[in-house]
Simulated scan of single mutants.
Amino acid sequence: MERVTKLASERPVVIFSKTTCCMCHTIKTLFCDFGVNPAVHELDEMPRGREIEQALTRAGCPTLPAVFIGGEIVGGANEVMSLHLSRSLIPMLKHAGALWV
């Protein structure tokens, strides 16, 4: 979990993803459309990606993508979309320094 915490704090928005996951692609596209430049870690391309995925599951994010904003775990695609639909995502991104609009 130490490695996850370190990676999750490298930018205002960090996404743990898999290249073959359609929901991961959707969430990455959503953030990019907002003008956010997230750090994306493709777990299926990382040497110890499986270990990171297991640590994310233990941390309470059982599905990918696993999204961190401001170093805090937000959750997966459902949680991100719920925040977006409730108009809470943009303020959260601004507060984390990911958006300056």
Rank of each mutant, 00 (worst) to 15 (best):
N37P: 05
G97D: 11
M46R: 09
T19W: 08
K28N: 01
L7I: 12
A8K: 09
G75S: 04
T57V: 09
I15Q: 00
R3W: 11
K18T: 10
G76A: 06
K28A: 01
A77L: 02
M23S: 02
L64S: 05
C21M: 06
R3P: 00
N37H: 11
I27L: 06
G35W: 12
L7A: 07
G97Y: 07
V14Q: 01
G70I: 08
D44W: 12
S82P: 00
G76Q: 04
C32Q: 09
E2W: 13
E2A: 15
K94P: 00
F34M: 15
A98I: 06
A39N: 10
M46C: 12
M23F: 13
E45H: 13
E79R: 03
C21Y: 08
P65V: 03
S86A: 14
I90F: 11
H41V: 11
L30D: 08
A77C: 13
L43I: 07
T26Q: 10
G76T: 02
H41M: 04
E2G: 15
A8T: 04
H95K: 14
R3I: 11
C61N: 10
A96P: 00
S17Y: 00
T57M: 14
V80P: 01
G76E: 02
C21K: 08
P12K: 05
R3D: 12
K18L: 06
T26F: 06
P38W: 03
S17C: 03
M92F: 07
I69N: 00
C32G: 10
K6D: 11
G71V: 05
V14F: 08
T26S: 11
L30H: 10
I15C: 01
G71E: 06
G71P: 14
R48S: 14
